[in-house]
Write a protein that binds this DNA or RNA. Structure first.
Lengths: 205, 205
DNA sequence: CTCTTTATCTCGTCT
DNA sequence: AGACGAGGTAAAGAG
Protein backbone atom coordinates (compact mmCIF):
# COMPACT_ATOMS: atom_id res chain seq x y z
CA UNK A 1 0.00 0.00 0.00
CA UNK A 2 1.41 3.30 -1.03
CA UNK A 3 1.08 6.50 0.99
CA UNK A 4 -1.05 8.62 -1.30
CA UNK A 5 -2.15 12.05 -0.32
CA UNK A 6 -5.52 10.81 0.77
CA UNK A 7 -7.36 7.53 1.01
CA UNK A 8 -10.49 5.86 2.26
CA UNK A 9 -9.91 2.50 3.82
CA UNK A 10 -12.33 -0.01 5.26
CA UNK A 11 -10.30 -2.29 7.44
CA UNK A 12 -10.27 -4.77 10.26
CA UNK A 13 -8.25 -2.82 12.79
CA UNK A 14 -7.87 -1.50 16.33
CA UNK A 15 -6.50 1.75 17.67
CA UNK A 16 -4.76 3.27 20.65
CA UNK A 17 -4.59 6.98 21.33
CA UNK A 18 -2.40 8.80 23.82
CA UNK A 19 -2.39 12.53 24.18
CA UNK A 20 -4.91 14.81 25.78
CA UNK A 21 -6.45 11.65 27.16
CA UNK A 22 -5.81 7.97 26.52
CA UNK A 23 -8.14 5.64 24.71
CA UNK A 24 -8.43 2.28 23.08
CA UNK A 25 -10.70 1.22 20.25
CA UNK A 26 -11.56 -2.48 20.22
CA UNK A 27 -10.75 -4.48 17.11
CA UNK A 28 -13.40 -4.39 14.43
CA UNK A 29 -14.19 -3.14 10.95
CA UNK A 30 -13.89 0.62 10.66
CA UNK A 31 -13.59 3.32 8.06
CA UNK A 32 -10.23 5.09 8.08
CA UNK A 33 -10.08 8.44 6.32
CA UNK A 34 -6.80 10.15 5.53
CA UNK A 35 -7.25 13.61 4.10
CA UNK A 36 -5.00 15.89 2.08
CA UNK A 37 -4.44 18.24 5.00
CA UNK A 38 -2.72 15.48 6.95
CA UNK A 39 -5.67 14.71 9.16
CA UNK A 40 -6.82 11.19 9.84
CA UNK A 41 -9.96 9.82 11.41
CA UNK A 42 -11.54 6.47 12.23
CA UNK A 43 -15.29 6.11 11.88
CA UNK A 44 -17.59 3.49 13.37
CA UNK A 45 -21.02 2.60 12.01
CA UNK A 46 -22.77 5.24 14.13
CA UNK A 47 -22.36 8.89 15.12
CA UNK A 48 -21.31 11.90 13.10
CA UNK A 49 -18.07 12.26 15.04
CA UNK A 50 -15.15 9.90 14.52
CA UNK A 51 -14.06 7.34 17.07
CA UNK A 52 -10.45 8.52 16.87
CA UNK A 53 -8.83 11.32 14.96
CA UNK A 54 -5.76 13.47 14.59
CA UNK A 55 -6.00 16.99 13.25
CA UNK A 56 -4.49 18.69 10.23
CA UNK A 57 -0.72 18.59 9.94
CA UNK A 58 -0.28 15.26 11.62
CA UNK A 59 2.80 13.25 10.72
CA UNK A 60 1.43 9.98 9.39
CA UNK A 61 3.58 6.94 8.70
CA UNK A 62 1.99 4.03 6.92
CA UNK A 63 3.37 0.52 7.25
CA UNK A 64 1.93 -2.76 5.92
CA UNK A 65 0.15 -3.57 9.15
CA UNK A 66 -0.17 -0.31 10.99
CA UNK A 67 -0.59 3.42 10.70
CA UNK A 68 1.22 5.66 13.14
CA UNK A 69 0.13 9.27 13.48
CA UNK A 70 2.19 11.72 15.50
CA UNK A 71 1.52 15.34 16.34
CA UNK A 72 3.08 17.37 19.11
CA UNK A 73 2.34 15.39 22.26
CA UNK A 74 -0.31 13.19 20.71
CA UNK A 75 -0.01 9.78 19.15
CA UNK A 76 -2.49 7.53 17.41
CA UNK A 77 -1.55 3.99 16.51
CA UNK A 78 -3.83 2.00 14.26
CA UNK A 79 -3.11 -1.69 14.03
CA UNK A 80 -4.35 -3.15 10.79
CA UNK A 81 -5.25 -6.82 10.58
CA UNK A 82 -6.92 -6.82 7.19
CA UNK A 83 -7.71 -4.29 4.50
CA UNK A 84 -11.19 -4.95 3.16
CA UNK A 85 -11.23 -2.03 0.77
CA UNK A 86 -8.98 0.88 -0.10
CA UNK A 87 -9.88 3.75 -2.39
CA UNK A 88 -7.86 6.73 -3.49
CA UNK A 89 -10.23 9.65 -4.13
CA UNK A 90 -9.69 11.52 -7.37
CA UNK A 91 -9.86 15.30 -7.31
CA UNK A 92 -11.46 15.41 -3.87
CA UNK A 93 -12.95 18.85 -3.40
CA UNK A 94 -11.92 21.08 -0.55
CA UNK A 95 -14.77 23.57 -0.99
CA UNK A 96 -16.32 24.90 2.18
CA UNK A 97 -20.01 25.43 2.64
CA UNK A 98 -21.40 28.91 2.21
CA UNK A 99 -23.59 29.57 5.16
CA UNK A 100 -26.29 32.13 5.67
CA UNK A 101 -29.43 32.82 7.58
CA UNK A 102 -27.80 32.37 10.92
CA UNK A 103 -29.11 33.91 14.08
CA UNK A 104 -26.09 36.20 14.08
CA UNK A 105 -27.15 37.57 10.71
CA UNK A 106 -30.56 38.54 12.09
CA UNK A 107 -28.93 40.29 15.03
CA UNK A 108 -26.76 42.19 12.55
CA UNK A 109 -29.90 43.44 10.85
CA UNK A 110 -31.44 44.45 14.16
CA UNK A 111 -28.34 46.45 15.04
CA UNK A 112 -28.10 48.06 11.61
CA UNK A 113 -31.70 49.16 11.74
CA UNK A 114 -31.91 49.75 15.46
CA UNK A 115 -33.34 53.26 15.11
CA UNK A 116 -36.32 51.89 13.20
CA UNK A 117 -36.90 48.88 15.45
CA UNK A 118 -36.60 50.63 18.83
CA UNK A 119 -38.08 53.84 20.25
CA UNK A 120 -35.85 56.69 21.39
CA UNK A 121 -32.25 57.39 20.56
CA UNK A 122 -29.83 54.49 20.97
CA UNK A 123 -27.55 54.88 23.98
CA UNK A 124 -26.13 51.38 24.27
CA UNK A 125 -26.47 48.33 22.08
CA UNK A 126 -24.74 45.07 22.88
CA UNK A 127 -25.04 41.50 21.67
CA UNK A 128 -24.59 38.43 23.86
CA UNK A 129 -25.34 40.52 26.92
CA UNK A 130 -24.55 38.36 29.93
CA UNK A 131 -27.09 37.48 32.59
CA UNK A 132 -27.29 34.71 35.16
CA UNK A 133 -29.75 32.94 32.88
CA UNK A 134 -27.29 33.00 29.99
CA UNK A 135 -26.48 35.53 27.28
CA UNK A 136 -29.24 37.68 25.81
CA UNK A 137 -28.98 37.89 22.02
CA UNK A 138 -29.30 41.65 22.00
CA UNK A 139 -29.42 44.31 24.69
CA UNK A 140 -30.61 47.77 23.66
CA UNK A 141 -30.76 50.85 25.86
CA UNK A 142 -32.37 53.94 24.39
CA UNK A 143 -33.27 57.33 25.79
CA UNK A 144 -36.74 56.01 26.63
CA UNK A 145 -36.50 52.26 27.18
CA UNK A 146 -34.39 49.19 27.69
CA UNK A 147 -35.01 46.23 25.37
CA UNK A 148 -34.03 42.61 25.84
CA UNK A 149 -34.20 40.79 22.53
CA UNK A 150 -34.26 37.09 21.77
CA UNK A 151 -33.69 36.47 18.06
CA UNK A 152 -34.68 33.33 16.18
CA UNK A 153 -33.76 32.51 12.61
CA UNK A 154 -36.97 30.54 12.18
CA UNK A 155 -40.55 31.22 13.12
CA UNK A 156 -40.93 32.37 16.71
CA UNK A 157 -42.50 29.73 18.92
CA UNK A 158 -43.72 29.70 22.50
CA UNK A 159 -40.31 28.41 23.45
CA UNK A 160 -38.65 31.69 22.50
CA UNK A 161 -41.25 33.56 24.57
CA UNK A 162 -40.47 31.56 27.67
CA UNK A 163 -36.76 32.05 27.01
CA UNK A 164 -36.98 35.84 26.96
CA UNK A 165 -39.08 35.71 30.11
CA UNK A 166 -36.28 33.81 31.83
CA UNK A 167 -33.83 36.51 30.80
CA UNK A 168 -36.20 39.18 32.10
CA UNK A 169 -36.28 37.50 35.49
CA UNK A 170 -32.51 37.28 35.53
CA UNK A 171 -32.10 40.88 34.41
CA UNK A 172 -34.28 42.09 37.26
CA UNK A 173 -34.59 45.71 36.19
CA UNK A 174 -37.33 47.27 34.11
CA UNK A 175 -37.12 46.40 30.43
CA UNK A 176 -39.20 45.47 27.41
CA UNK A 177 -38.90 41.81 26.44
CA UNK A 178 -38.74 41.24 22.70
CA UNK A 179 -38.70 38.30 20.34
CA UNK A 180 -37.39 38.94 16.85
CA UNK A 181 -37.62 36.75 13.80
CA UNK A 182 -39.01 36.32 10.30
CA UNK A 183 -42.34 35.01 11.58
CA UNK A 184 -44.32 33.95 14.61
CA UNK A 185 -46.76 31.17 15.37
CA UNK A 186 -50.34 31.97 16.32
CA UNK A 187 -49.85 30.60 19.81
CA UNK A 188 -46.69 32.59 20.33
CA UNK A 189 -48.33 35.78 19.03
CA UNK A 190 -51.23 35.33 21.44
CA UNK A 191 -48.80 34.76 24.28
CA UNK A 192 -46.84 37.88 23.37
CA UNK A 193 -49.97 40.03 23.25
CA UNK A 194 -51.19 38.93 26.64
CA UNK A 195 -47.77 39.08 28.29
CA UNK A 196 -46.46 42.37 26.96
CA UNK A 197 -43.76 40.82 24.87
CA UNK A 198 -42.86 42.84 21.79
CA UNK A 199 -42.63 40.91 18.55
CA UNK A 200 -40.20 42.41 16.06
CA UNK A 201 -40.58 41.24 12.50
CA UNK A 202 -37.19 41.02 10.81
CA UNK A 203 -36.54 39.22 7.55
CA UNK A 204 -33.49 37.89 5.77
CA UNK A 205 -32.39 39.92 2.74
CA UNK B 1 -28.41 1.92 -6.30
CA UNK B 2 -30.18 0.26 -3.42
CA UNK B 3 -30.76 1.83 -0.07
CA UNK B 4 -28.61 -0.35 2.15
CA UNK B 5 -28.28 0.30 5.80
CA UNK B 6 -24.98 2.06 5.30
CA UNK B 7 -22.76 3.06 2.45
CA UNK B 8 -19.68 5.03 1.53
CA UNK B 9 -20.00 6.94 -1.68
CA UNK B 10 -17.51 9.10 -3.52
CA UNK B 11 -19.52 11.24 -5.86
CA UNK B 12 -19.68 14.36 -7.97
CA UNK B 13 -22.40 16.23 -6.12
CA UNK B 14 -23.62 19.41 -4.48
CA UNK B 15 -25.70 20.01 -1.38
CA UNK B 16 -28.16 22.42 0.16
CA UNK B 17 -29.01 22.49 3.85
CA UNK B 18 -31.85 24.31 5.54
CA UNK B 19 -32.50 24.07 9.23
CA UNK B 20 -30.64 25.66 12.08
CA UNK B 21 -28.99 27.77 9.37
CA UNK B 22 -28.96 27.61 5.61
CA UNK B 23 -25.98 26.58 3.53
CA UNK B 24 -24.89 25.54 0.11
CA UNK B 25 -22.01 23.30 -0.85
CA UNK B 26 -20.58 23.94 -4.30
CA UNK B 27 -20.51 21.05 -6.77
CA UNK B 28 -17.46 18.87 -6.53
CA UNK B 29 -16.26 15.40 -5.57
CA UNK B 30 -17.07 14.52 -1.98
CA UNK B 31 -17.32 11.53 0.29
CA UNK B 32 -20.85 10.77 1.42
CA UNK B 33 -21.21 8.53 4.47
CA UNK B 34 -24.51 7.00 5.46
CA UNK B 35 -24.36 5.16 8.75
CA UNK B 36 -26.54 2.51 10.35
CA UNK B 37 -27.98 4.93 12.90
CA UNK B 38 -29.56 6.98 10.13
CA UNK B 39 -26.96 9.71 10.16
CA UNK B 40 -25.43 11.07 7.01
CA UNK B 41 -22.44 13.28 6.39
CA UNK B 42 -20.55 14.81 3.49
CA UNK B 43 -16.77 15.12 3.77
CA UNK B 44 -14.41 17.31 1.82
CA UNK B 45 -10.70 16.67 1.38
CA UNK B 46 -9.78 18.61 4.53
CA UNK B 47 -10.92 18.95 8.13
CA UNK B 48 -12.06 16.37 10.63
CA UNK B 49 -15.61 17.65 10.66
CA UNK B 50 -17.98 17.08 7.74
CA UNK B 51 -19.11 19.82 5.36
CA UNK B 52 -22.75 18.89 5.84
CA UNK B 53 -24.41 16.38 8.13
CA UNK B 54 -27.64 15.23 9.65
CA UNK B 55 -27.74 13.41 12.95
CA UNK B 56 -28.91 9.98 13.98
CA UNK B 57 -32.50 9.12 13.19
CA UNK B 58 -32.72 11.15 10.02
CA UNK B 59 -35.23 10.04 7.41
CA UNK B 60 -33.17 9.45 4.30
CA UNK B 61 -34.65 8.87 0.86
CA UNK B 62 -32.34 7.83 -1.92
CA UNK B 63 -33.20 8.43 -5.57
CA UNK B 64 -31.05 7.86 -8.66
CA UNK B 65 -29.78 11.42 -8.77
CA UNK B 66 -30.32 12.79 -5.30
CA UNK B 67 -30.43 12.03 -1.61
CA UNK B 68 -32.97 13.79 0.55
CA UNK B 69 -32.53 13.76 4.31
CA UNK B 70 -35.27 15.03 6.60
CA UNK B 71 -35.30 15.42 10.35
CA UNK B 72 -37.64 17.54 12.43
CA UNK B 73 -37.16 21.04 11.00
CA UNK B 74 -33.98 20.28 9.12
CA UNK B 75 -33.50 19.22 5.54
CA UNK B 76 -30.43 18.26 3.55
CA UNK B 77 -30.64 17.77 -0.19
CA UNK B 78 -27.71 16.22 -2.00
CA UNK B 79 -27.79 16.44 -5.77
CA UNK B 80 -25.76 13.67 -7.35
CA UNK B 81 -24.29 14.16 -10.80
CA UNK B 82 -22.05 11.14 -10.90
CA UNK B 83 -21.20 8.26 -8.62
CA UNK B 84 -17.47 7.60 -8.81
CA UNK B 85 -17.46 4.84 -6.24
CA UNK B 86 -19.94 3.22 -3.90
CA UNK B 87 -19.11 0.72 -1.21
CA UNK B 88 -21.33 -1.14 1.22
CA UNK B 89 -19.36 -1.80 4.41
CA UNK B 90 -19.62 -5.31 5.75
CA UNK B 91 -20.06 -5.81 9.50
CA UNK B 92 -19.14 -2.21 10.30
CA UNK B 93 -18.32 -2.03 13.99
CA UNK B 94 -20.19 0.27 16.33
CA UNK B 95 -17.72 -0.10 19.20
CA UNK B 96 -17.02 3.05 21.16
CA UNK B 97 -13.60 3.99 22.38
CA UNK B 98 -12.72 3.23 25.96
CA UNK B 99 -11.28 6.36 27.35
CA UNK B 100 -9.15 6.90 30.41
CA UNK B 101 -6.96 9.49 31.97
CA UNK B 102 -9.73 12.02 31.95
CA UNK B 103 -10.14 14.76 34.47
CA UNK B 104 -13.06 12.88 36.00
CA UNK B 105 -10.80 9.93 36.70
CA UNK B 106 -8.42 12.11 38.66
CA UNK B 107 -11.29 13.45 40.72
CA UNK B 108 -12.34 9.85 41.43
CA UNK B 109 -8.89 9.20 42.84
CA UNK B 110 -9.02 12.34 44.96
CA UNK B 111 -12.35 11.26 46.43
CA UNK B 112 -11.24 7.69 47.04
CA UNK B 113 -8.12 8.86 48.86
CA UNK B 114 -9.59 12.00 50.39
CA UNK B 115 -8.47 11.13 53.91
CA UNK B 116 -4.84 11.07 52.76
CA UNK B 117 -5.04 14.17 50.60
CA UNK B 118 -6.90 16.43 53.02
CA UNK B 119 -6.45 17.25 56.71
CA UNK B 120 -9.17 16.46 59.23
CA UNK B 121 -12.12 14.12 58.93
CA UNK B 122 -14.24 14.45 55.83
CA UNK B 123 -17.62 16.04 56.49
CA UNK B 124 -18.72 16.81 52.98
CA UNK B 125 -17.23 16.01 49.61
CA UNK B 126 -18.87 17.06 46.37
CA UNK B 127 -17.80 17.25 42.76
CA UNK B 128 -18.90 19.93 40.31
CA UNK B 129 -19.72 22.23 43.21
CA UNK B 130 -21.55 25.21 41.76
CA UNK B 131 -20.35 28.79 42.09
CA UNK B 132 -21.05 31.94 40.10
CA UNK B 133 -17.73 31.46 38.38
CA UNK B 134 -18.70 27.96 37.26
CA UNK B 135 -18.48 24.52 38.85
CA UNK B 136 -15.52 23.66 41.02
CA UNK B 137 -14.11 20.22 40.20
CA UNK B 138 -14.10 19.14 43.85
CA UNK B 139 -15.40 20.68 47.04
CA UNK B 140 -14.14 19.19 50.30
CA UNK B 141 -15.22 20.18 53.80
CA UNK B 142 -13.39 18.59 56.67
CA UNK B 143 -13.45 19.07 60.41
CA UNK B 144 -10.62 21.58 60.10
CA UNK B 145 -10.76 23.12 56.62
CA UNK B 146 -12.63 23.70 53.39
CA UNK B 147 -10.81 22.86 50.15
CA UNK B 148 -11.60 24.00 46.63
CA UNK B 149 -9.86 21.77 44.12
CA UNK B 150 -9.18 22.30 40.44
CA UNK B 151 -8.04 19.06 38.81
CA UNK B 152 -6.08 18.78 35.57
CA UNK B 153 -5.32 15.57 33.73
CA UNK B 154 -2.12 17.09 32.39
CA UNK B 155 0.65 19.05 34.01
CA UNK B 156 -0.62 21.95 36.09
CA UNK B 157 0.03 25.31 34.44
CA UNK B 158 -0.42 28.89 35.55
CA UNK B 159 -3.80 28.79 33.88
CA UNK B 160 -5.16 26.31 36.41
CA UNK B 161 -3.85 28.51 39.22
CA UNK B 162 -5.75 31.51 37.95
CA UNK B 163 -8.82 29.37 37.48
CA UNK B 164 -8.90 28.24 41.12
CA UNK B 165 -8.39 31.82 42.20
CA UNK B 166 -11.49 32.82 40.26
CA UNK B 167 -13.44 30.12 42.05
CA UNK B 168 -12.11 31.34 45.38
CA UNK B 169 -13.37 34.84 44.66
CA UNK B 170 -16.78 33.47 43.69
CA UNK B 171 -16.94 31.21 46.74
CA UNK B 172 -16.29 34.14 49.05
CA UNK B 173 -15.85 32.20 52.27
CA UNK B 174 -12.61 30.99 53.79
CA UNK B 175 -11.13 27.98 52.00
CA UNK B 176 -7.87 26.49 50.81
CA UNK B 177 -7.43 26.66 47.03
CA UNK B 178 -5.89 23.53 45.53
CA UNK B 179 -4.67 22.39 42.16
CA UNK B 180 -4.39 18.65 41.63
CA UNK B 181 -2.68 16.77 38.85
CA UNK B 182 0.10 14.40 37.87
CA UNK B 183 2.65 17.21 37.62
CA UNK B 184 3.21 20.93 37.80
CA UNK B 185 5.31 23.41 35.86
CA UNK B 186 8.04 25.39 37.61
CA UNK B 187 6.20 28.64 37.05
CA UNK B 188 2.97 27.26 38.41
CA UNK B 189 4.71 25.78 41.45
CA UNK B 190 6.31 29.10 42.22
CA UNK B 191 2.97 30.82 41.86
CA UNK B 192 1.33 28.30 44.19
CA UNK B 193 4.01 28.74 46.85
CA UNK B 194 3.72 32.50 46.89
CA UNK B 195 -0.08 32.56 46.72
CA UNK B 196 -0.94 29.88 49.26
CA UNK B 197 -2.32 27.48 46.70
CA UNK B 198 -1.95 23.85 47.68
CA UNK B 199 -0.58 21.54 45.01
CA UNK B 200 -1.82 17.97 45.31
CA UNK B 201 0.17 15.39 43.41
CA UNK B 202 -2.13 12.70 42.09
CA UNK B 203 -1.15 10.13 39.47
CA UNK B 204 -3.01 7.80 37.16
CA UNK B 205 -2.90 4.08 38.08
C1' DC C 1 2.18 32.18 17.55
C1' DT C 2 -1.32 31.94 21.42
C1' DC C 3 -5.76 33.09 23.08
C1' DT C 4 -10.81 33.63 22.64
C1' DT C 5 -15.22 32.67 20.66
C1' DT C 6 -18.30 30.13 17.86
C1' DA C 7 -20.88 26.01 16.35
C1' DT C 8 -26.33 23.45 11.80
C1' DC C 9 -21.43 22.25 17.75
C1' DT C 10 -22.15 16.62 18.94
C1' DC C 11 -23.22 13.61 22.48
C1' DG C 12 -24.18 11.80 26.85
C1' DT C 13 -26.87 12.24 31.10
C1' DC C 14 -30.37 13.55 34.05
C1' DT C 15 -34.96 15.20 35.34
C1' DA D 1 -39.04 15.26 25.74
C1' DG D 2 -36.39 19.01 27.29
C1' DA D 3 -32.47 21.00 30.03
C1' DC D 4 -27.69 20.78 31.22
C1' DG D 5 -22.79 20.29 30.75
C1' DA D 6 -18.56 17.88 28.95
C1' DG D 7 -15.55 17.30 25.00
C1' DG D 8 -8.96 14.33 23.18
C1' DT D 9 -14.49 19.46 21.64
C1' DA D 10 -12.80 21.30 16.18
C1' DA D 11 -12.29 25.40 13.62
C1' DA D 12 -12.42 30.32 12.79
C1' DG D 13 -11.11 34.81 14.17
C1' DA D 14 -8.44 38.27 16.81
C1' DG D 15 -4.35 40.13 18.76
Amino acid sequence: MKNSESFLMFADCSAVYDGRARSTLARGNYLIIKKTDGSISIHGSTLITPRNYMGAGTNIVIAPDNIIANRKSEKLIITIYDILECYYPYDWSDSKIEISRTEAELVDKLIAGASTYFDGTIELIEREYRTDAGPIDLFVKTSTNTYLVEAKRARITLNACYQIRRYMDAYGLDAIPCVAGPGISDNAKKHCDSNSILYISVDFD
